[in-house]
């Protein structure tokens, strides 16, 4: 038998470790999804496969409320943060360093540097005061908080795209009689569109996933889907939570896949 040729890239055991890691990454998710199809009343028994808990979750008005609230919140925060992040990205790229530029970078990325729990209690302190002063306790606080921590995520792909675009195309447009606004409208914006969509999707996912900050900012009866689930976990859990989690998971996978394809498409 011929000896296997020497493989430059091989390292003993690495393949095994990697496959083990991938197995470990997906085993819990598989368990979660499997139990969501459990017919039994409790997680400790297995009574066969059914959609019972999906149907039950679907008709649960608390889940319905939380889902709608999560979506409204994620769409508003993603839209607002993407607009603010796009403007900020335009203001901080493709320029010679100017006074305040480094400050802007640091400030925009600040929400990434601080543990969520700290931001959460900080907002609790401030917003609880404002709630007392103004009497307003609507969704506005959550939208403001989510928009703030979504901005650095939306900013990321937009800034990266702008950094890879030099000013030549805008110069060419100006040379061909396009005013600065027209050059932005007909050249910069179309070229930036995939990055803006990617930024919006990132912000959407980040807002949808947030537990900690929402938990501290929300007023009574303002549960989002994640905080509703966190509340339920305190009690004896029923497979209904698994069903909700499975749907949530499916939604995340769809979003990530979509994001992946949006980002990969080179204009």
């Amino acid at each position: 038998m011929a000896k296997r040729p020497f493989d430059i890239q091989a390292q003993p055991g690495f393949g095994f470790m990697a496959l083990l890691t991938f197995f470990a990454l997906y085993l819990p998710i598989a368990a979660l999804v499997t139990y969501s199809f459990n017919t039994a009343d409790s997680l400790s028994r297995w009574d066969g496969v059914s959609l019972r808990w999906f149907i039950s979750a679907w008709h649960n008005s608390a889940v319905q409320d939380a889902s709608v609230r999560s979506l409204v919140l994620a769409v508003s925060a993603a839209a607002l943060s993407t607009i603010a992040a796009t403007m900020a990205a335009l203001a901080t790229t493709r320029t010679r360093p100017y006074p305040g530029l480094t400050f802007k970078y640091a400030f925009i990325n600040q929400p990434l540097m601080v543990p969520e729990i700290v931001t959460g209690v900080a907002l609790l302190i401030v917003f609880s005061r404002i709630k007392v002063w103004t009497g307003y306790s609507g969704l506005g606080y959550l939208i403001a908080a989510h928009t703030a921590f979504c901005i650095p995520f939306a900013y990321l792909p937009i800034r990266a795209r702008l950094d890879s675009m030099d000013l030549t195309l805008e110069r060419a447009a100006a040379d061909l009689y396009a005013t600065p606004w027209k050059a932005f409208r007909f050249v910069t914006l179309p070229l930036l569109r995939p990055a803006i969509i990617a930024g919006f999707m990132l912000a959407f996912v980040i807002s949808l996933d947030d537990v900690v900050i929402t938990e501290f900012v929300k007023s009574g009866g303002q549960d989002t889907l994640p905080t509703y689930m966190l509340g339920q976990l305190r009690r004896e859990t029923s497979p209904e939570i698994n069903a909700i989690a499975t749907v949530f998971l499916a939604l995340s996978v769809v979003l990530v896949t979509a994001f992946y394809f949006v980002n990969r498409r080179k204009p």
Binding site: L169, R171, A172, A173, D175, L176
Partner: peptide
């Protein structure tokens, strides 16, 4: 009007 070294054609 200018003909750019890299042509600078609008890719979209």
């Amino acid at each position: 009007n200018t003909v750019f070294q890299s042509y600078a054609l609008f890719p979209h």
